[in-house]
Amino acid sequence: MTAICIDHVSKRYGPPGAPLILGDIELEIPEGQFVALLGSSGCGKTTLLRIVGGLETATSGRVEVAGRDLGTTAASRRRALGDVGFVFQEHNLLPWRSALANVLLPLENRKVPRSERRAIAEAMLEVVGLSAASAKLPHQLSGGMRQRVAIARALSYDPSVLLMDEPFGALDAQTRDNLNLELQRIWLEKQKTVVFVTHSIQEAVFLADRVVVMQAGPGRIVADVPIELERPRGIDVLATPEFARYTGVLREALTHQAATDERGSAA
């Protein structure tokens, strides 16, 4: 089944005639697939993710999540977005609430019975390996631990789609590698549909089943590359010829299109 359908979506800020941020995006993502959106800053990948997550509206085109059109009725939109979890680069944890209480928050907002909430939140903290830190406040946690709490919070209401906007971009390299391994483990266990925004070629190849390359001017898809590396993937896969081949293909897609655009502008 198709989890996400993006049908001729465009986006501009401002009146008609203002420059397009996104231009005629078409993309289908099957249920359970891990897709990385790869591109440099300004190519529209975060804008596209926000449209899929209902945080922005498309100027034209149509988006379906779990078979529900985001642009029809308010009720349909609410039902579709109720099946979506979002993890940002900033963890956005409430500083006065413990790790457990932060994970409880979306369950409270969704009126999950009080008798069930705590067990669900504790189970999600166990999934991300933070059971022992449940009573700690965000300032008592490392950056990587705070992002794991954010992932637990996004998973707490069991969404079928998880949207992740450069969630590890601000972390040091070793913590980022560790969290990539952790995210892969969670994805293999939960089999959610994941759309993961990144500007790191290495991160995209390591995590994804499929890498969608975007370029700016306006934002558009210039390559769609399946990643056929066995899972689970360990850090040692980064040193293999197969991994190098995929990073080379993606780097070529990024640089070739950028060079083409530059020649077109000069002309």
Rank of each mutant, 00 (worst) to 15 (best):
A239E: 07
V127D: 13
V149D: 12
R176P: 14
L162D: 10
A101H: 10
V63N: 14
N92S: 11
V103K: 14
I29Q: 08
N109V: 09
G42A: 05
V84M: 08
I21S: 06
S10K: 00
E242L: 00
V128N: 00
A132Q: 13
S265Q: 12
D172G: 02
L20F: 12
P30Y: 03
V63D: 04
R233A: 06
D224P: 09
I235A: 10
I227T: 03
A133P: 03
E166G: 13
R210G: 07
G54E: 14
L171S: 00
E64C: 13
A258Y: 10
A239V: 04
L163K: 11
L162Y: 15
L125R: 02
V249A: 08
G39D: 12
M214P: 05
L55K: 06
A3Q: 02
L49Q: 04
I186T: 07
I25E: 09
A154S: 14
E203M: 02
R251I: 01
P113W: 00
A216N: 02
E64W: 08
I51T: 05
W187V: 03
L37R: 09
D261A: 06
M1H: 10
G17C: 01
C5V: 15
S131L: 10
I21M: 05
Q147I: 02
R77F: 07
V205C: 01
I227E: 15
R68W: 00
A223S: 15
L188A: 09
V65R: 03
I4S: 12
